[in-house]
Design a protein around this nucleic acid. Structure first.
Length: 228
DNA sequence: TCCTGATCATTC
DNA sequence: GAATGATCAGGA
């Protein structure tokens, strides 16, 4: 058995996907890794995407495909989210890389952020570092689309952040900007650079950035599920 | 204690 | 370098 084989073909419907995801609830990383023939790292320091890749395998996501949803036929994106004992998120959620050039005329309606978040299967996973990785369990999955209120929050932040980028003010953006959506470095290290627009409209080199959902956005989203 | 800025692996 | 998958870790 090899690590890159798919345990399942892609699900044929949202319902099938959700049922498959629900069947994983309560399972430990040890169970899923062992049954997939995959070694479990001691921790995630050098394997940050390990849990996400493991769940892609079990859910039949198109691993490695790019610029497409994880479940292309269904238009569904898969997101694992580490949670504490109360079901609250332990980390922000990466959405997509921010385009730093060629943004003249871009609007929210056709943005990558909006498309990525239009339909998401959230897979909560115990993430407390006091719990050995092998013993961490999958939580109850949530198939989600933004409510009108949530989309409005996202759009407001996205437009504010994109304005900075287009106007050559990217170096002034910090993770504190945005109520629910923030812009932070997304790179191999602080020496990785990409082209952007400078304060006088000239090309500059800067850190690649990504859009991330703040915990203030994902926490209520997860909590709502437990109230229903 | 928590959040921001930095970082890790892998593929192409 | 860009894109996929994210979490780490020290300073505020």
């Amino acid at each position: 058995m090899t690590g890159d084989m798919t345990l399942f073909p892609p699900p044929k419907s949202e319902q099938a996907l959700l049922e498959r995801a629900q069947a994983l609830a309560g399972c430990s990383m040890e169970e899923l890794a062992t049954r997939a023939g995959i070694a479990i790292p001691r921790d995630l320091r050098r394997d940050k995407g390990w849990v996400g890749m493991l769940l892609e395998l079990w859910l039949g996501a198109c691993a490695g495909s790019k610029a497409e949803p994880d479940f292309a036929d269904l238009g569904v994106e898969l997101k694992t989210i580490p949670i504490d004992g109360q079901g609250r998120p332990l980390e922000t959620t990466f959405v997509c890389v921010a385009p730093l050039t060629g943004n003249t005329g871009v609007v929210w309606q056709t943005s990558h952020v909006r498309h990525k978040l239009s339909r998401v299967l959230w897979m909560p996973v115990e993430g407390d570092r006091a719990i050995p990785l092998a013993q961490r369990r999958i939580g109850s999955p949530i198939l989600w689309s933004p409510t009108p209120e949530e989309e409005q929050l996202l759009q407001r932040d996205w437009e504010e952040l994109m304005d900075f980028i287009v106007l050559g003010q990217i170096e002034r953006i910090t993770a504190r900007h945005g109520e629910v959506l923030q812009l932070r470095p997304k790179a191999a290290n602080s020496k990785a650079l990409t082209k952007a627009i400078g304060e006088h409209g000239q090309p500059i080199m800067t850190l690649p950035r990504g859009f991330y959902l703040k915990k203030t956005f994902t926490a209520p989203l997860l909590a709502r599920h437990f109230l229903l």
